[in-house]
Design a protein around this nucleic acid. Structure first.
Length: 155
DNA sequence: GCCAACGTTGGC
DNA sequence: GCCAACGTTGGC
């Protein structure tokens, strides 16, 4: 089965690529996704898929690094944690509503690639993150798009 | 801080 | 099932 490629957003003030790099084994669970479309994409992920780690709400917003899927989707424990801001009182105890994956950091990009650069690159016009009003925090990208972002980071 | 775009909720 | 109200995302 061919590897798939994804883009995942995080606000660096909340959790940055460097934070992921600093984790034991550079690996962490991606909890807190509370959007069905984003969750469904995570449930499609397989170990070894590659991820562009995108910093939203940054100045400017940018792709910061790459990661790989280290564990396929499993229930997000924060939905049952009343002290968590991700607590979901409607999640049935026997049927988890929300799932997460584990991500392992791979490489920090040689330089960040800004959203504006992505928008200006004619090869990336189909990328969802470059399209207006596209807020989805987990989105598929093509291999060509993934490779193109890496190529841009090396110039 | 503003606000457009979008998703969710809940009354009817 | 419709849709207004509301909440969130996230660029600017």
């Amino acid at each position: 089965m061919a590897r798939k490629y994804w883009l995942m957003k995080s606000e660096p003030d909340a959790y940055s690529f460097d934070d992921l790099m600093a984790e034991p084994e550079q690996t962490a669970c991606w909890d807190g996704i509370r959007n069905y479309q984003a969750r469904n994409f995570m449930m499609e992920m397989k170990v070894g898929d590659y991820v562009l780690f995108y910093h939203s709400n940054a100045k400017p917003p940018h792709v910061a690094g790459t990661a790989r899927v280290a564990r396929e989707s499993y229930p997000d424990h924060t939905q049952y944690d009343k002290k968590s801001k991700y607590y979901d009182p409607k999640a049935p105890a026997d049927a988890p509503r929300w799932q997460m994956v584990d991500l392992q950091a791979m490489e920090k990009l040689p330089r960040p690639v800004s959203l504006n650069e992505l928008k200006e690159n004619p090869r990336l016009t189909e990328m969802r993150v470059t399209q207006k009003g596209q807020r989805l925090s987990v989105q598929p990208v093509t291999r060509k798009e993934f490779d193109e972002v890496l190529r841009m980071a090396k110039k």
